[in-house]
């Protein structure tokens, strides 16, 4: 998340009120795209969480012996009946192409850890998004007041503004 720091204007101690209208609107656009990106990331995280919980459910079903007769997909539309002969012997994808052999309780622990880890990240991300949205609101307000003030100060003349 290193790229989600506040824009450079904060580092140089420029007050938002001092920025010109085009600067403000480009800042607003940047905020908007940031928020869109973060929201996308958030939904990706949520997806990952639900995938892992599904895995967890499956492991639970296997562990409780309620799932030992399954249909094995040979193709998308062709299935054969199968029976789990070693229900306590699972192979878990741990990432980067590596797989670990685990028993049911280990696998469950693994998935629970994953879910917890991702949930924490998702919560953090949600907070960041919220903050960004408040910032955006403030920015939009300032932009609106500035625009209104500008319109008042030069009612008729459409001359190039030297803001």
């Amino acid at each position: 998340m290193s790229a989600t720091e506040l824009p450079a204007s904060n580092q140089q101690q420029i007050r938002i009120e001092d920025l010109s209208l085009p600067q403000l609107s480009s800042l607003r656009d940047q905020f908007n795209s940031d928020i869109a990106k973060l929201t996308q990331l958030y939904s990706q995280l949520r997806n990952a969480i639900s995938t892992f919980s599904e895995c967890n459910n499956c492991v639970e079903a296997i562990a409780s012996k309620s799932l030992n007769k399954v249909l094995v997909p040979l193709t998308n539309s062709l299935y054969v009946r199968g029976e789990l002969v070693q229900p306590d012997n699972l192979i878990v994808d741990v990432g980067t192409g590596y797989y670990l052999e685990k028993n049911c309780s280990q696998a469950q622990k693994f998935y629970s850890n994953k879910i917890e880890y991702l949930s924490q990240n998702a919560d953090k991300l949600a907070k960041t998004i919220e903050e960004k949205q408040t910032n955006l609101q403030v920015l939009a307000d300032i932009l609106a007041t500035k625009a209104a003030a500008l319109q008042k100060s030069q009612p008729a003349s459409e001359a190039s503004s030297k803001a």
């Binding site: 741990v94 990432g95 980067t96 192409g97 590596y98 670990l100 693994f110």
Partner: peptide, 25 residues
């Protein structure tokens, strides 16, 4: 990528030395 690899490393450190590890090739 770094994060993913670190997670894998952590997972490796959690299992015993007799653990079976496979690689998808």
């Amino acid at each position: 990528q770094l994060q993913e690899n670190e997670l894998v490393q952590k997972e490796f450190s959690l299992v015993g030395s007799d653990a079976k590890i496979y690689k998808m090739i």
